[in-house]
Amino acid sequence: MLINLLRYEIKRIVWSKKYLYIVLLIVASTYDLLTRLITGGYMGTAPFSDWTYTLFLNLISPLLMVAMIFIISNTFNDKEMRARSIVLSSPISQTQYYILKSAAVFVTFILTSLVPIFMSFIYYKAMFGYNEFGSFINLIFVFLFPTFIFFLGLSMFLGKINIKLIYGLIPVAFLMGALNLGGNIIPIWADIFGNNFFNMYSFSMLIGREMEVVPFEMPSSFIYTRLGFILLGIMFLVYTCKKGEKK
């Protein structure tokens, strides 16, 4: 039954004008980024280098995350809250309900991220005849997923307290993703998007480089912070599932 409900939830999100509009914006934004910024390559690296692809992921992230936060906010809007009392009177527990909602958003996130990812792959193939996308998968997992899981957990957590707090999260996500404040201002453990790390790391690795292809090897400290964000996100989710509903 849960699978059917999940399918229904996903369909409800994806089969809407709002989602179509978001996807169109993502398509437009991806096209603009690829043709305007990515073609030139990041700091003189190839446009299909891991460095440039990470830049692409960093540039597309704020839009993806804010879109997802909005989708999550729908879980806590008045209409949904009214429906929840009916849903919870069925044999679905509160934990199952939130897992169902989170899983639906998670699948939607995957579907949505596939749009810019596939667009970039097609672009690389068509423009540069490049098709070795294996290393990009790694970057997608390191840069996109922890950020999303953290925001998913945090949004669920905040939404449960008060939906207005989710709206407060939107400018934070936009600013943290779009502004690069430098390594000294945003410490690595608070670098949700990983863009400040990427900026500092690429400076240290690419300035004065003595080879054309510099391997993008992420330091373990960075990987730990990404795992930390995943863990935090999951903890927020668990808390949301366990904490009793407000009367």
């Binding site: 030139g40 390559g41 190839a46 690419l206 003595e210 080879m211 054309e212």
Partner: peptide, 8 residues
């Protein structure tokens, strides 16, 4: 060095 290694 950096410019010598620019892709383009």
């Amino acid at each position: 060095n950096e410019l010598k290694n620019y892709y383009y």
